[in-house]
């Protein structure tokens, strides 16, 4: 995605900020809890400003329903977990110039990807009298495993600031900034006391991407990694530290797996203590 292409999509007058044609925006939902879409709905007055700058074409949770009209930006929430999803995500991609995944589910598979670690067929059979009516794939997958993704916004859920920063950058015709630093950096800027050191709790801040404003440590609790892996990861060393804090090997593995189990980066380190299953 280069600058030239972006300015083609978002051709705006830099003086008055008015567009030849308001860029269309769609917000699509796949398998998810709808929490990331709240990043839009919680905007308050800024939602009116957003509506002035872009044409919200499709956003079922807010009202507008039109999956057919091509758009400049498609936001995608949720993971791919049914056969129907696999077909719908292709249509979403075809109709969007720029596709942004929002949240853990869309970006990595999210919480529901935990079922990839289990025998989902056996679960279905034990719960539903006629499981053959279910359209459910054995494995949950992220959007990027199906179509090209132009930008990933991490978090469970994402926040309004991330979404607005992405829209603003695209309207300027530039790629949104990505910050792959660790939560620790945000945490220290807020002058929080480190919960690993002062409380001995298994905080995932040192391996987790910033962007949340170190929400959990700010309230004295340990980060559970919902913003996904940061760059320059050392999960093996942090896992060892968690063991030193008294976590059993299985607890260490589960700590990393909770939100992003489908990611290689948060997979258990190889070794006798951490063998999978």
């Amino acid at each position: 995605m280069d600058r030239y292409f972006l300015t083609q999509i978002f051709s705006t007058c830099l003086v008055c900020g008015v567009y030849d044609m308001k860029p269309g925006v769609a917000v699509h939902k796949f398998s998810s809890c709808d929490g990331c879409q709240l990043a839009f709905l919680n905007l308050g007055e800024e939602l009116l400003e957003l509506d002035r700058l872009v044409e919200i074409v499709h956003f079922a949770e807010a009202g507008p329903f039109d999956e057919q009209t091509p758009v400049a930006i498609a936001f995608v929430e949720g993971s791919i977990s049914t056969q129907a999803d696999t077909e719908r995500i292709r249509r979403v991609r075809e109709q969007a110039d720029f596709l942004i995944t929002i949240g853990a589910c869309a970006t990595s598979g999210g919480v529901q990807a935990l079922r990839n670690l289990a025998d989902s067929g056996a679960w279905h059979a034990s719960i539903y009298p006629e499981p053959e009516y279910l359209d459910s794939l054995d494995n949950v997958t992220a959007i990027r495993e199906h179509v090209k993704v132009d930008l990933e916004l991490w978090g469970c859920p994402v926040n309004s600031r991330q979404v607005l920063a992405a829209v603003r950058a695209l309207l300027f015709g530039v790629l949104p900034e990505t910050d792959r630093d660790k939560v620790c950096m945000e945490c220290k800027r807020q002058q929080n006391v480190c919960v690993i050191v002062a409380q001995g709790v298994p905080c995932l801040g040192p391996v987790t991407r910033s962007g949340c404003g170190s929400l959990c440590p700010r309230f004295g609790r340990d980060c559970y990694g919902c913003y996904g892996p940061a760059e320059a990861l050392n999960t093996a060393s942090l896992g060892k530290r968690f063991a030193g804090l008294g976590l059993l090997p299985e607890q260490v593995v589960n700590r990393f797996r909770a939100i992003h189990s489908h990611l290689e980066e948060f997979a258990p380190p190889q070794g006798p203590d951490y063998d999978r299953e």
Partner: peptide
């Protein structure tokens, strides 16, 4: 480096470290 988390905590608590970024 096998032990270091590259989390930056040492530099953030260091009273002499002064690096900054702008945005």
């Amino acid at each position: 480096a096998n032990r270091c988390l590259a989390c930056g905590n040492c530099t953030q608590v260091c009273p002499t470290c002064f690096c900054s970024r702008e945005r």
